[in-house]
Amino acid sequence: MQGSFISELFPKHTPMELLIEHAKILSEVTKDVKPLVEKYFNHEDIGELVDRISDKESKADKIKFKLRKMFHKRIKTPYTAKDLLEYLHKQDFLIDSIEDISKKLSLNRIDGLDEEVQTLFLELVDVIIKAMGYLEEMTENAKKAINTSFAKKVLDAEESDSVRIEDLEGEVDKLSLKIGKWIYSHKNKLNPIDLIFFRELVLLFVEIADEAENTAELLNALIK
């Protein structure tokens, strides 16, 4: 005897559950960046952390495929499949970018980064961690929005988080400018390849912050 077909009306996993799982991975890999950068600055071995981030990225990919596969069947959700897949794509891009940063760090060691720029860079990482935390919260809120039948309170919270991420993106811009100034003020002191390498790293973080802002805006628009 099998079960009731009523339960088959409901997919085993909902798209929002998978997106939250995916967002959690994003938050986790971003938190891994802080010890990674600290170790990098201290010239310690970062191999283990790079592998860990890579493993998590693979896990995120599996969720991505699962979610895409879910939409091969026709399922009705309060959000359109197109919007959810676009959101997934953006969130996945962020995880990929974090993995890119971790791999990039393993390519080249930079000497001569003083305490001032190291502090600025770590501040940049902290801001990104905060932004990803809010993004995770927003994804959870998008599920909560369904549970509360799109209560204004939840929609307002989503809007506030989106504004916070926007503000953090502004902070990243300011920090990147400061770091940029430091880079160009050291053009005669450091190896040019190292300077380009370091600049690229900063630009990757700027790109992540931009994309986090876009992702938050998409999510905010999606639940309204």
Binding site: E8, L9, F10, T77, P78, S149
Partner: peptide
């Protein structure tokens, strides 16, 4: 009524 996270339309 946008009250459920997902319904399997194929099953319907």
């Amino acid at each position: 009524a946008r009250g459920l996270e997902a319904i399997n339309v194929d099953k319907l």
